[in-house]
Design a protein around this nucleic acid. Sequence first.
DNA 1: CCTACCGATCGGTAGG
DNA 2: CCTACCGATCGGTAGG
Lengths: 187, 187
Amino acid sequence: MTRKEQIRQVAQNMFREKGYAATSMRELAEAVGIEAASLYNHIKSKEEILQDICFGLANDFFSALDTVKDAEVPADVKLTQAINVHIKVITTNLDAAGVFLTEWRFLSEPHLSNFKNMRNRYEREFQRIVLEGIRQGIFKPTDVKLYCLSLFSAMNWIYQWYKPNGELSPNELGERFSLMLLDGLRV
Amino acid sequence: MTRKEQIRQVAQNMFREKGYAATSMRELAEAVGIEAASLYNHIKSKEEILQDICFGLANDFFSALDTVKDAEVPADVKLTQAINVHIKVITTNLDAAGVFLTEWRFLSEPHLSNFKNMRNRYEREFQRIVLEGIRQGIFKPTDVKLYCLSLFSAMNWIYQWYKPNGELSPNELGERFSLMLLDGLRV
DNA sequence: CCTACCGATCGGTAGG
DNA sequence: CCTACCGATCGGTAGG
């Protein structure tokens, strides 16, 4: 692991726990084990770290979704797969997920707009799958936007309480979630 | 409206939008229309404002829940009512809800522990209703904790996107949510 | 990677 | 409710 990767990993944890604004570069440096000024040999600014975390995880989400979104399967199966890979990304990147979900608003322009656009594109992929299911007659006619909003909030909240060493593996969790969230939708 | 109430209201909005840590007392004072030092004639500290917001809304949530939790009705009706009043509190206090849900972690001890305890007690009331329904045979046997976690996340996320002047009234929203979230649960 | 340091800003107080 | 000010801390740079 390079020093830059180490800085990012430590920062992920601190940004998640204390928040981006309340984390100082001196605290970050101390946790890494160097002086504050030395951080700037590896990064350009505090915000650059935030950008790396947010856009890095956005990339993970898209890569994961790409593996399932064009499969030739019924919409309920596809939605289950999409839920599973989304949860997988969160549960295996808890710190980054926390930052991605709550600290993105400290991005400056134009990164802030880029971020929002990516997020919207991602959410629309899920809406497309649900719409597909309604057209196929597999899902009840539903307020697609409201449903997806609730679906995302339930999935994204996982970072708040999931324990990597608890009883639930990411796969088991994904399965339970799919059942729970789909049974209200399936005809 | 007293000056203290005005300060709280302006602070709710700024804390929600910029975050507690990133909001300075000077910005707050300017938004109120006085000098920073003058704030301290009405409040003891920056954190006192946060405490008032967090515990004030906690009180609203409990008051709302009290009006429905002991009704002699089937569990599905009771859960629907609980969902409705919870959503009502959020949609009519959007700024305070945002602070309550994301900025509570900046509370210092012992307020932080008090806050967590209150939140746990509140969540357990919902779990009790779901358990009641399972015992009554109205709800499917379910992972109660996981279900309530998802229920709360979906309801609480509302503050992120709800527009008070949009098409959906709080009551309509509550109704749609209940249907959506209960239909996966009801036998 | 460090020492030394910059100007800016922080929450809050004294005194009127 | 204001002016004037406190010590502490902020993100970041110069120079080696």
